[in-house]
Amino acid sequence: MRSDLTRFVRNTLGAVAAVAVLTPFSAGAEEIVARLSYHWAPAHHSAIYCQKFADRVNERGAGKIRIETYPSGQLFGIREIMGALTSGAVELGGVVGTVSFPPVNKNYNAEGLPGVFQSFDHLRGFFRDDPAGKAVWDNILKRTLTTFVAYNPTGPYMSFSAVRPLDSVEAFQGLKPRYLAGLERPRWEALGASAISLPTREVYTSLQNGMIDTLSTVPSAIKAYSWWEYLKFGQKPYQFFADAFILGNQRWWDGLPDDVKQILLEVGEEISKESTESIMRFSDEVLEEFVKEQGGRVDELSGEELAKLEAIDREKVLPAIKDLIDADVLKAVQDYAAK
Rank of each mutant, 00 (worst) to 15 (best):
V9S: 13
N105C: 12
V33R: 09
E111W: 01
L75Y: 00
F290Y: 14
V203W: 08
Y238H: 15
G73I: 02
L183H: 04
S272D: 13
K64S: 14
V267I: 13
S194K: 11
D299V: 03
T147M: 12
I279V: 14
A18N: 12
V33W: 13
K236R: 14
W253Y: 15
S26K: 15
D259V: 05
K273I: 07
I212P: 07
L145H: 15
E184W: 07
P103Y: 08
A307K: 07
Q334P: 00
A244H: 03
P199Q: 07
F127T: 07
P71E: 03
S37M: 05
K308C: 01
G133H: 01
T146C: 15
A338R: 14
D55I: 07
Y238N: 13
V163P: 04
I212D: 00
L141V: 08
S272H: 08
D213R: 00
V95Y: 02
N105R: 00
H44E: 04
L166H: 01
I279Q: 08
P219I: 06
H122W: 09
S72K: 10
G83C: 09
Y70C: 05
Q334L: 01
D167G: 13
W253F: 15
A29C: 07
V9D: 15
W227T: 00
G295C: 10
E293N: 13
Q262T: 04
R2D: 15
V329C: 15
L207Y: 04
K176N: 02
K106C: 10
V99L: 08
P237I: 01
M280K: 15
A338P: 14
Q239V: 15
S194C: 11
P102V: 02
V169N: 01
G73Q: 03
K106A: 11
K273N: 11
P219R: 07
N139W: 14
E274I: 05
D121F: 09
A332H: 01
Y179P: 07
N249D: 12
Q208V: 12
N105F: 05
T12Y: 10
K176R: 08
A132M: 09
G83V: 01
K322C: 03
L215R: 00
A327L: 13
P42E: 12
I222F: 08
T154V: 10
S220C: 06
K236N: 02
E68K: 14
I222K: 02
G125W: 06
R178L: 15
R314V: 00
F172C: 06
A162W: 01
D259W: 11
G61C: 09
L75G: 00
G77L: 04
I325T: 02
S72D: 13
V329Q: 11
K331S: 12
L265Y: 04
I222D: 09
Y157L: 15
G303F: 01
S100K: 10
Y108V: 05
W188F: 08
P219G: 10
L191E: 04
P165T: 00
P199D: 06
Y157P: 06
H44K: 02
D243V: 02
P114C: 05
I196C: 07
E305V: 08
E30N: 12
L306T: 05
S3G: 10
S26C: 15
R164T: 01
Q74H: 12
G133S: 02
L191F: 01
I246K: 11
S194M: 03
T154K: 11
A221D: 14
E304Y: 11
G174Q: 09
D138S: 09
E277C: 13
P42F: 14
A27Y: 09
A221T: 06
T144L: 14
L175M: 06
V33Q: 12
